[in-house]
Each structure stands twice: as structure tokens, then as C-alpha cells.
Amino acid sequence: MLMLDVKDVHKHFGQLHVLKGISLQLERGETGVLFGRSGSGKSTLLRCINYLESIDSGEIYVDSELVTPDRAKLRKLRANIGFVFQHFNLFPHLSILGNVTLGLKVVKKTPEDEAREIALKALEDVGLKEKAENYPEELSGGQQQRVAIARSIAMNPKMILFDEPTSALDPELIGEVLEVMKDLSQQGMTMLVVSHEMGFARETADKMFFLHNGKLVEEGPPSEIFRKPKTEECRRFIEAIL
């Protein structure tokens, strides 16, 4: 059963052709890792999937629903797609619990008590239940990113998109975030992750996608990508970052 179906997506920023006909697919429960040089279009592609960026042509389906600019449909779609940002983007004026319950209360109209219960469960999943009453600024980067993941989980999404979730973190904090992501993947969450964490990709990814100059030049399971990359660009890139 397809969860994500990206069909021939093109995107320009002014003159710049950033996505040149990308097609890729993820089955329900799969974890995909998007990687490639900076400027290759991987973050842009991820942001197109929940329409943080518009696309010029092509189609994107999430669980058979077309991603469209129609605002009411888009809100519904976004409520079903988690998005974890490089810089966490927690709400600084709300407590950790407030951060995790806001979407439930405002979007899903979940009653206060129930929202609290769901949020505490999500925080427990990321190992931060005891921080519920703290504020984002009191947490380390790694903890903040785990809260951001809990904020996504609490909405019970069909899929979570991760945009370089560990690249703003100090090296010693990366592990705890990847650990949480690995757990999620093992529990069957569909995930698409932009990341250069090759250890994570090797252990967790079902599929890897290598983007180069706005094109998907190579895809396959990590075993193939790491052992015998088909293209020169991919081979060189992997050598450079390993």
C-alpha cells in the first residue's frame, strides 16, 4: 500500500530549476532517507510534500490524497503529516506540554484532559515525560528535537517528514534523537528523512534516495547504495561523508 507517491515533480526558485522531475515512492511503514549535496533539492522536495513549498508541475499523493493548495484540504492533509525541522521550531511561549497539546486542541478539537493524556504518552515515547512543565529554552537541543518529534507523534500522523533533524545539534546530542527516530521506524511509522547520518540510514532505512542537481539519480536499499552505488556521483558523495 503506497503511502507517498511523488510523480514527476518540478520546482523553480525564480530562474533556478531546483527539482527536475522527481518521482519516488514509499510504502506504508517504510523509512526513506534522502541524501545528497547541499543545494541538490532534498529539503525542497520534503517541504513540497506538505506544501510548505508549492510545486510547478507534477503530482504528490499522500495515502492516495492529492497534495493541493486548497486551504481546507491542505489543513487536513498537514494534520496527518508530521514535520520535524532542523531548528526544532518549538513554540517558546508555551510549556513542553503546551507545545505538544496545541495541535490536538486547536486542530483536532481534542478535550483538554484527553489532549494532556495523549501528549504525556508521546513525551514518554521520546523519554521526556518529566519535562512536561518546563519551557523549550530550559532544554538542550537534543531534548528540544525530541519534543518536536513528540509534537508530531501526538497528532497520530500517517507519515513524518524529517528535515535534517540532527544537523543543528552538538555531536554528543545526535545519538538520542536518532535513537527516538529508530524506535519510531521500528514501530511502523512511515518516515522520510533528509539526513547525512549514514549510520542511521544503514540501520534504519528501507530505501535511500540520492539527489543530485535536482534529479533523483539513484535509489535502492542501503545494502546496495553502500556496497555498489551505480553512479559516480553517488559513490563519490558516500566516500566523502563516510
Binding site: 506538505n50 510548505l52 486551504r71 489543513r75 487536513k76 492533509l77 498537514r78 494534520a79 496527518n80 503529516i81 508530521g82 514535520f83 525541522f85 531548528h87 521550531n89 518549538l90 513554540f91 496545541l102 495541535g103 486547536v106 486542530v107 518536536a148 509534537r151 497528532m155
Partner: peptide, 18 residues
């Protein structure tokens, strides 16, 4: 207020007014 705050909110499915 940073663009990231908007993006995080709309990604949860929140409307512009909310």
C-alpha cells in the same frame, strides 16, 4: 516572529487565524 513558527504551526494543520 520567525518564519519557523509559522511553518511549525501550519504543519500541524493550523489555519492562518489560529
Amino acid at each position: 516572529v520567525g518564519r519557523g513558527q509559522w511553518e511549525a504551526s501550519v504543519s500541524l494543520g493550523m489555519s492562518y487565524v489560529d
